[in-house]
Every structure is written in structure tokens, then in C-alpha cells.
Design a protein around this nucleic acid. Structure first.
Lengths: 231, 231, 231, 231
DNA sequence: CATGAATGAGCTTTCATTCAT
DNA sequence: CATGAATGAAAGCTCATTCAT
């Protein structure tokens, strides 16, 4: 009789993988499932896990509450599916970053620009992560899939830093993980906290100019942090 | 959240101001009010605004639902009071930072250490801010008091940077606001996102060693960012 | 977030004990609580635990769903309260049986008549017990109070049998418990199963004549079972 | 239960009758139908009519909800089919009782032993009957088949009592129906109500020793009830 | 025949809030 | 001021049942 059994997700078919079945029915099912997932992403991103209601989601997906349980099992399992999909997309985007090993400065700048603009263009990414951190990672730790999406970006960044070090441009001892976190922190925090920061600083942070200024500052700070000492 | 009437706060007496009435009853009232505010801070910090219930709060405060409405008017107004109190305390702590203008390096380090440790020791500060940012600052913009608590730390930091510049230690063109945000970003992000980052990186971020490493890295990065060019 | 926490009942005040508070409010509260309990008894008796809905109960009690949770905590806890009250009333009725030790035959007959007529006049007693046995006694075993109501009738019956044995009317070795169960079985089964028995036997069991016949048969069977051997 | 349309059963083929079609498909259909019926018996026996869900049944039968409607028409019609099958099996078992007219005492004992052990080994028989009696025989009265299964046991018992009377062992005036009900009552009640009785008596009724004791007591009580007066 | 997606009403439970002492 | 009963809407979830291949 327990209502919310915190079990692993029980989705009936993969969300974003290639369709395994053919035919109109399967396609319709895929469509329903996808619509629910997209609607849930929006609703959870906007209102958080507790604040977003199942009804809101099913309506936005032009489906029924029942179908959420049919395909995902519970509100929580749906949220986990949303997180997984979010990570998958981020990972996919990251892995498309094409960097030249010959130009470490440009490559490092490209990494920073990528992260900054990914966060900026995908605000749900930020709010969903905040929501999940509010719950102390309770949901993502239940995901079997999450670990698959561990950042490839750190490896990419590692190669950039190494090639820069080989050319005498960067210090050799800086850790790729630390630099990655530094970039993420500076991009994420600015965008995530812009509303309270605006109130706190009494200054608009959401303008194009303010954002361009910050992006430049981040690039500058990172460059100075990894730069080799001049002699 | 649809049920929350978005009315202006109507608290009967200031939370942190001096008691205007005297006598046992007034003291009891103050105690109840304070207990509710403390309980609300905990509950909202743990479950978010939508996720925390009025009953949870009143029980934790060993009081009654009714009292929340009596003293604060609505759930939302209580949340605003929590945010205000949170800012007030942060501001108070910041203003106690005693810095020597003669030692810019040490002073800058002290600022970083202060922010890092304030965030670390006050995790509700982070989750409450995240919750409020989820709501796009809707509540704090209703507060008349919030602006009063605008960071004094930026001024303090400005003086430190200026004295460092005067001594030739720091570049003169770096903006105090940018440096302040950089410090906040690096400290806040690490602590706020540690749960998802742990899953993402496959690495524990919550250990004393990991945190000490990050603090050192932040100090180093900030120093390199503001440092004057050697010649 | 778990919906049905199977905890012990958490009623706010005793249901059937003397009112501990005075005043109109307390009386109204008692009335609401009593109305819910009576309505629940009827609904559960008619439709079983799963078949009876909270809404049905609250409507029958002219109250609100919410009040059931306010006073009883959950549907299950309400059911437990119903069972307790049912036992309490049965026990109370049993304890009022006034029997003369001088006339064992009449006293034994009176016990049988009492049980037969109690079951007949309190059909919810039977259906509630059946419902609870369907659940393998899951609810009653959670009750702290149930054990208090253990049959006083067996003791009463024991005294009757002993006095009969002393007079040479009854065998001395028959166990009061066995005789009690025999009486209960014959009365209970006939009434409980009359609907399927009617279909099975192709005969109406619900008429006054049929019931009088059965009552007489029960008395006769019990008497023959406990009777001392004639010599 | 409000959702249950009370329509007449519309099963497509008899459950237990000979297959009317031949071939693999018909066999598969029979298998599915049988699996559903067995699963439904278990589920309804465990949770009652309202408490057992169609999904539970179809899952337990490793089939689909849809098949229940295909073969049985509705949840209620399925329940009726379960009751019919239950009666059919009981009747079948009863009719296999081989009794010798020469030994009335042994035969009567055998009847009692049969009923006691049938009830004991078929607990669903008891809970299904209780469930149906909760509904006041609503379903079984809709069955066209139920009357076919009216007890043959009463006839058998009648012959045993008559032969016993002829031999001067039993009284001649006892009705077979009454004795049958007495046996059924004592066996059924003990097993059906053992959970609440255990709580009520503060004594375990489910042990082998306790059950053997009760069986012996039933035999003794019945014997004393039907026994002819000694002279 | 089997499969499974869809449907909408219903369920138990919890919510924020107000009324009445 | 404190206490606690009352209220009605809405939450998450499950139900029996049907539609469409």
C-alpha cells in the first residue's frame, strides 16, 4: 500500500535511443513518451521536483497522468529519467567539441566558450541540477545510467593543457579537473544566481553587455591561472 | 504552489528588531516567532519552498500552523522573512571581517577564506539561495529590506585590491565586483553542486582533504588573476 | 513522501472514554470523531476494508476526508479504531451477562442465547471480523488495546460448567474454551454464511422460523456435548 | 466498486467443460483462460473482490488485462467464474467420498475428517466464501451453474445417519442438514477466524497440536449430538 | 489471439489556509 | 496569545475498462 516505492526506473523502452520497434503504434508510443519527457524537463526545471505536478506535466505533454505511470512508474522515476536525458545531452554536446592540439590558447578559450554558452542556452540544465542538489543527489545516485555520462570534457581539457604545457604556454602542474571546475563554477554561478545577485548587487546581470563582460573575465581569469610564468 | 496567494508580507513585528513590547507575553511572542523562523529556515533549506510544508515548520517550531499565519501572514511571506534573515546574518558576518590595509595578500586570502567557510558552515544559505533563484528571485524582489543588506564585502574587497595595487602587488584594473563574484562562484559552486559533481566525476568532494585542496586552488587562482605582471 | 505509513493509530483522544475536556468545542470534536467512527463501522462492515472508501465514510459522517486524517491518521488506523470499538462493545455486552450459579442448565442456555442474538443483532460484528481475517489479523495485531478485551465470557462459561459438573449435570473434563468456540462457531457460521448457504442448500436460512430452529439445535447440540453420562 | 458495471457474465467458452475447438490455438486459449482463473482465485482469495485488481491477476497469470475482458467480460464475471469453479471442485471432492453403509461411526468420522481437511487445505475456499457473503451472495445468485453443485454431501450424510439409526447407534430424528451445518460450522469457523481468535484468546490456534485437538473435539461433539440415548 | 497503448474516473492522502474559542 | 477544529482544493497514484493493431 506504500505509495512511493523508491525503486529504480522502469521505463518500458529507451527514451532517446533509436526506435527498436517499427510501425505506427510503436511510433506513437515513442512520441507519447518523448512528449512526457520533454514536458517534465520543462516543468521540473521551472518549479523544481516538489513544485512541479504530475498533472502539469501530463497536460503539457497533451497526454494523461496515467501514461506517466505507465511509462515511467512514478513521479520520481520520471525525474530520474529527466536527469539522465539531461546528462546524456550535455555529454553529447561536449563530445562534439572539436579542438586543435596545435593551438592550446584557442582551444582553451573554445572550451570556456562552449561551457558558458551551453549553460546559457540550456537554463533547465542549471535548475535541474540545483533541484537535484537540493535533494543531495538522491535521485541521480539511483540511476544506473548516470555514470556512463561522466565528463569527457575533462579528458579533452587535459589534452589541451598538456599540449599547452608542452609548448611552454601553460604551467604543467595544474590539474584538468580543477580547471574544469573553475570554468564550470564561474559560468554556472553567474547564470544560476543572477536573480538573487541582481537584488544583492543592485545591478542587472542579465544584459548582453554584462554577460559578455563576464565571459571575457572568465577567459582572462582562467588564462592567468594556467599561464606559465614569464621569464 | 497554485494555492499560494501572492500577497505582500504582513508580519506584525520585525523579526530581528528590538522588542517593542515588554513583559512576559511579549517575550513569549518573540520566542514563538523566532522558533518559527528558525524552523522555517531549516525546512525550506532542506525541501525547498514548495517541498516544505507549513505543518512541518509549525511542528518543528513546537507551535501551530495558525501561529505562522498570525505572525507572518502566509507561507510565502514566511519564506521572504527567512530570506531576509539569511541575508541579514550574512551581511553581519561579512561586516565583522577585520582586514589590515597594510597586508593586501593576507587580506585577500582572508576574504576568500571567510567566504569559503561561511558557505561551508551555512549550507542553508546555499540551498535557500538556489530555491529563490529557481523562482527567479520572485520573493526577494518583494522584500523591502533586502536592498539594505547589499554586500559590504565588495567595498571591503575594493579597498584591499586598491591597497594591493598601490603597493604594486595587484593589477589596478581588476574590478572588485568581478573578483568578488569569482570567489563566490568558486566557493559556492563546489559546495552547492557537490552531490551531482560527485556522481559526475566519480569522486568524493565532501572529504576534508578534497575541500582543503579546493580552497587552496581558489586562493591560488584568485591571486594569479589579480596579480600584477612581474617584470 | 510515503503515502501509507503503517504506524500505530494516533487518535487524538479516546473515542469511547469519558470526555476529558468540557466546553462546546470539545463536544463538537467528540461528535465529529464519533460520527466518523460510526460511519466507518457501517461502511467497512458493508464493503470491507478495500471496498469502503474514505469519501464514503466522511460523507456518511457529514464531515470531510481531511478530518479522518486529522483524527485517525490513515484509513488503516481508522479501521483499527473500528475494530477496537467493536471489540470493546462486544466485551461490554458480554460482561453484562448475569448468570446464576445455581442453575447451570439455564445459565448455559442463556450464554448461547446471548451469543446467538448478539451476532444476529450486530451483523457488522461478523463482517468486520471476516474482513479482518481476510487480512490475516494484520490490523488487530497492531492494536495495543485489543488484548484488553479478551473474552470474559470464557471465564463466565467456565464457572457455569464447573457448577454444572459439581451438580453432576455436566461432564467435568470439557474445556470452557472448546465449548465457547463451539457455540461461537455454530452461531457465527450460520449467520455469516447464510447467503452462500442459501444458494448452496437451495433453502432460505434467513426466516424467523429457520433461525429459531437453528438456535434450538445449537442449544441441544451443546447440551448433549457437555452432558454427563446417565447411568 | 462503483466502477463495476454489473452486467451478466459473457464468457466465450466454458471454463471446465470439454474443449469445443481443437488445435494448437484452442489449446493456447484454454491455457490462458485457465491461468487467469487460477490467478484470479488466488488474488481474490487473498485480497477480496474489491481489494484484488485486474492488473494483479493478469500479471500473475502472465497474461494481459485485455485477456480477462476477452474471456470473462468483466471483473465481476471473472469473480463469478472463480466462485463456480470453487464450488465445482468442492463438489467433485465431496462426491469422491467412499463410505461404507455398514460402519456408520467410521463413516461419520470420515465425513467430518473430510470437511475439516478440505477447509484446511483449501484456504481460498474459505476466504472466497467470506468475500461472497460480504456481498450478500450478490454474485453467486447471478450464476446459473451454482445450483448444480448443491451439496451431495448432505445426501451422503443422510444415508450414514439413517444406517446408524437403523443400527440403534444414532437418534433417528436428527436432520442431516443440521448435522452437516454443525460440522461445517465448527470446521469453518475455527479456520476462518483463527487470526482474530488468536488475538482474542491470546493463544495460538494455528499449530498442529491445536488443530488436532479441535478436530477431535468436533468429532466428539458431533458424535454426542447424534448418539442414541443409552438405556 | 495476443499485445500494449490509451482513457478518465476514482482512490488515499496532504496541502495551505481560516474559523472559533 | 495560544489552541485546535474545520475546510475544500489539489496532490500523487491506481483503478477497471476500451481502442487499435
Amino acid at each position: 500500500m506504500a505509495r512511493t516505492a523508491l525503486v529504480a526506473p522502469q521505463r518500458k523502452s529507451a527514451t532517446a535511443s533509436a526506435p527498436r520497434r517499427t510501425g505506427a503504434r510503436a511510433a506513437a508510443a515513442q512520441a507519447t513518451q518523448g512528449a512526457i519527457l520533454r514536458a517534465a524537463t520543462k516543468v521540473f526545471a521551472k518549479h523544481g521536483f516538489a513544485g512541479g505536478s504530475v498533472e502539469q506535466i501530463s497536460k503539457a505533454a497533451k497526454s494523461y497522468d496515467r501514461m506517466i505511470y505507465y511509462y515511467f512508474g512514478s513521479k520520481e522515476a520520471l525525474f530520474i529519467a529527466v536527469l539522465e536525458e539531461m546528462y546524456r545531452r550535455f555529454n553529447e554536446a561536449e563530445s562534439k567539441l572539436a579542438l586543435s592540439a596545435d593551438e592550446p590558447l584557442e582551444s582553451l578559450t573554445a572550451v570556456i566558450r562552449f561551457m558558458w554558452s551551453y549553460y546559457e542556452k540550456n537554463p533547465e540544465f542549471i535548475t535541474l541540477l540545483n533541484t537535484e542538489n537540493l535533494h543531495r543527489g538522491r535521485h541521480i545516485s539511483k540511476s544506473l545510467r548516470a555514470r556512463e555520462y561522466s565528463s569527457t570534457a575533462i579528458e579533452i581539457l587535459g589534452r589541451v593543457l598538456a599540449s599547452g604545457a608542452a609548448k611552454g604556454l601553460f604551467r604543467s602542474e595544474t590539474s584538468a579537473r580543477d580547471v574544469y571546475l573553475m570554468i564550470a563554477a564561474m559560468a554556472y554561478f553567474y547564470l544560476s544566481n543572477r536573480y538573487t545577485l541582481s537584488a544583492f548587487l543592485g545591478e542587472e546581470l542579465d544584459t548582453a553587455a554584462a554577460k559578455a563582460h563576464w565571459e571575457a573575465f572568465v577567459i582572462d581569469a582562467v588564462m592567468r591561472t594556467v599561464a606559465a610564468a614569464r621569464d
